[in-house]
């Protein structure tokens, strides 16, 4: 058995409250991903030990769900809403425009430098803002809903993020407004 690595010890401490056969797997996976941004191989080994499950079982279950990642997330993820109200307002065009702007082929890819990714989002019932996306940063646990997008504003936003601008600046660029630092992120 290899020596305990520092990150394994961190995972172990993080999930010490969880028990086998108690319906704790999802909560454990969420907690680890919230802390580390993704589920590493060794994290899943530790989770398996804690919950008395084979690592293959942990990975098998985790990989069933869309929300668990096995690679570090992009600095900023654009979560694109795939819901019907958004589709009625050209969200397909918005998706394709953002992917093209970032040089990505498909959803769930990220730019080579890891700055921006596009991921799939599900409707959460804010359809008055359709079409919308959420800008997410794991480092700061930020989730920023952005509504009333157009393909053009999405392109400006994606370009700004790609070029190193942070969320607020990218929204100023998207909606062609003077930097304000606050306000609702809607066009």
């Amino acid at each position: 058995m290899p020596l305990e690595t520092e990150s394994k010890a961190r995972v172990r401490a993080l999930i010490s409250e969880f028990r086998p056969e108690n319906g704790d797997l999802l909560a454990t996976l969420h907690k680890v991903q919230h802390e580390f941004g993704y589920l590493s191989r060794e994290a899943m080994e530790v989770i398996g030990e804690q919950l008395d499950l084979f690592p293959a079982h942990v990975y098998g279950a985790a990989s069933f769900y869309e929300e668990f990642r096995f690679e570090p997330p992009a600095h900023t993820n654009i979560r694109w809403c795939s819901g019907p109200a958004c589709r009625l307002r050209n969200s397909n065009g918005i998706r394709d425009a953002m992917l093209a702007t970032l040089g990505l082929d498909e959803i769930h890819e990220q730019t080579e430098d890891g700055r921006v990714g596009v991921i799939n989002g599900q409707c959460n019932g804010c359809c008055e803002l359709a079409p919308m996306v959420w800008l997410e940063q794991h480092e700061t646990h930020t989730v920023r809903p952005v509504g009333n997008l157009t393909a053009a504003s999405a392109i400006r936003m994606a370009r700004a993020l790609r070029d190193g601008t942070e969320i607020e600046g990218a929204l100023d660029a998207a909606f062609e407004r003077t930097p304000s630092g606050s306000g609702v992120s809607n066009g």
């Binding site: 019932g125 804010c126 008055e128 803002l129 306000g183």
Partner: peptide, 14 residues
């Protein structure tokens, strides 16, 4: 609520 928050309720509150 989820919709209010997406519409900027926190900004209004602040």
């Amino acid at each position: 609520d989820t919709s209010s928050l997406a519409n900027g309720a926190q900004d209004t509150g602040r």
